[in-house]
Design a protein around this nucleic acid. Sequence first.
DNA 1: TCCAGTTATCGTCGTTATGACGATAAATCT
DNA 2: AGATTTATCGTCATAACGACGATAACTGGA
Lengths: 246, 246
Amino acid sequence: MKDYDPSRYPAVAVTVDLVVLTIRDDELCVLLVRRGEAPFKGQWALPGGFIQPAEDLDEAAARELHEETGLSPQDVYVEQLATYGAPRRDPRMRVVSVAYLALAPDLPAPQSGSDAADARWTPVASLLGRNRRLAFDHELILNDGLERARSKIEYTSLAAAFCSAEFTVAELRRVYEIVWGITIDARNFHRKATKTIGFLEPTGMTTTRDGGRPAQLYRRGSAELLSPPLVRPADHAHQTNDQPGA
Amino acid sequence: MKDYDPSRYPAVAVTVDLVVLTIRDDELCVLLVRRGEAPFKGQWALPGGFIQPAEDLDEAAARELHEETGLSPQDVYVEQLATYGAPRRDPRMRVVSVAYLALAPDLPAPQSGSDAADARWTPVASLLGRNRRLAFDHELILNDGLERARSKIEYTSLAAAFCSAEFTVAELRRVYEIVWGITIDARNFHRKATKTIGFLEPTGMTTTRDGGRPAQLYRRGSAELLSPPLVRPADHAHQTNDQPGA
DNA sequence: TCCAGTTATCGTCGTTATGACGATAAATCT
DNA sequence: AGATTTATCGTCATAACGACGATAACTGGA
């Protein structure tokens, strides 16, 4: 019923929250900030903030990302994740939050540009089964972001977004191993990565930074979709039967 | 910065818009309503409306779906699509719209439950290159919904959401052919559909409603993800895969 | 009744993709 | 120099897929 005057409806605040993932020391990490004020004062939360009157959602996400990390959208892949709007998710008022997922390489950049007093990279593994929960529904948002990241690298070349601009096949393989939490045969992965057109673009350079025989350096290829995709071994844990419904 | 009072920020209206897809007469159709008031009075738009103070986003989507179509979430698959919030997308005020994608079988249900005076199923093909554009940014939302539907049926069993509860392999194949706009070899598709575990669940019944030799009737299987997925022939339109000889 | 038409279903063949794993290459470390 | 480490190439068996022939089981008409 778009036909009613929008201003007749109760005001809602709209925020943008960020799930910024990176890989540090062979661990998948998420950027968290410690809240300085109520509600959830002192607890960890995803970085985010209110949208400005004149900016689009994507712009708000890019701005927040820059404010919190100093990262520019050039260095980082950003996409919209999902929107969360449960009536009581913020005790102060109705707040609808548009979540964004960002994948960043482990840049030497300082952690903060940073208007968040206390921001840090937290290994996601350390957040599981933890008593110190995240603020709001950010745990839910984080899990959705993780699942999105895990599935996205199956059929796109986005795993390379975790690597620096030039990287080796083995470094890319480590990304998959860390994000998926499995080990992958180096030889089969090498074959797959180098034979999938558009995945890797050779630079002609080599590096020995990972030790052993020098490895070719590649850049991220131009193909957005990998065909065929990399198959993630099915998580045989519990394939739940999903019923349609909102 | 989550730490400011939300009420200090300019009010934003939040709506839910629906991309409801179904297949009628071998065509992919989307539910559109004709707007009765300004802005965009008289133009076609996606159904939708403002969220209520006490309802979650998914609930708002289910409510709107029911109001516009009479369909209940049991009959229809619904998932959140994306959120749109460009500053001027609604000329009246800042409106952020959370779009949902719904996939419905061609039910004999009446078109309206219906508070929209004028609602109808429109073949999406008839909207391409058309001069009568949709209201707001609904054309963009529709395209995103179509792309989501096209890719979603690749790796899930959701194509069955377009069929009635019991369906034949050929009916399912028609769904793929229509949504993807291609033709598929009936024999290879039959092999793939019946051999992919969790895709189809046999009922033991047969039907001759499509003519010819009686066909087995199936229900949608319990697997949410198809492994391996059905591969949609790559759209070689402009996949920029330039590989210098490698 | 019998045959033509239609659709369903099964099977075959060659090609490609994949998992397991052996072997060699080219650097560093001791 | 030899051990160690990592990169890269190859082989083999199996699975999945595209193309397509063949057969099965119904319906509608001659």
